[in-house]
Amino acid sequence: MTDYTLQELMVIEAARQIRDGDVVFVGTGLPLLATAFAQRTHAPNLCFVVESGAIAPLVLPTPISVSDPRLMHRAVRLGTLREVLGCLLQRGLVDVGFLGGAQIDRFGNINSTVIGDYAKPTVRLPGSGGGNDIASHAKRLLIVTRHEKRRFPPRCDYITSPGYLNGPDARAKAGLKVTHPSFAVVTDLAVLEIDPATAQLRIARLMPGVSVEQVRKNTGFEPLVAHPVRSVEPPNPEQVRILREEIDPNGIYLKQSP
């Protein structure tokens, strides 16, 4: 059996959602590792797009910011924020967008703005950034997050980035051009996807050794359950080696101890 951590499997499982040739809008952290891993393995022709304006860089390990020069290495263009968020993303040319936030609710909406009341915040978070734009315009949305009850409330305190809002047709009614994006929330317990009939998150796959009950206990709403629920495929030794030695060799994001 391969020695790996759940965090490593999260990255690899997120990478599996990316197809060769995809245009991928990515920030930093685990999404960046997942995209770099996909490019190094099964998706050599994917196109990185980075908010600061970098298009198709050959990323060096390991950027810590969207303005990190490591994320610009040998790009085909270092352009502007308007070009990537406007001419690629809003224009409809981005296949996959990664999102992050403090809260994800049952409809896949994301909060990265405020905990508590907007006017009198308990905790003020960074805000939308490009998140709202990615959630509005990318065809497939990916979220990588730890699975904790407080991160999965029934309803976000503030919807920064739209998931399915409150039902299957809500995005269309709101006027969003991408009416039914595909959705995968990869956590340390499971992979959740959107159930097309209800537009709510359902447990699609479980991390090895995790039960549906465990996921339920750590989710602030009652998640739907796919039939059948499958298991996330563990990584092979070569995948773990690539991740540790080539993608995040200095352990910037990955904790090496299992």
Binding site: E51, T80, L81, R82, L85, G86, L89, Q90, S128, G129, G130, G131, N132, D133, A135, S136, H137, I159, T160, S161, P162, L165, A170, R171, A174, G175, L176, K177
Partner: peptide
């Protein structure tokens, strides 16, 4: 959002009073 802000600067640089965006909707 970042696109909304850069669109506001775009309106400013073009000498027009506003810019349309398709982000923000529903949020």
């Amino acid at each position: 959002s970042h696109l909304a802000m850069v669109s506001r600067f775009l309106a400013g640089e073009m000498g027009v009073p506003f810019m349309p965006v398709k982000s923000l909707l529903g949020s």
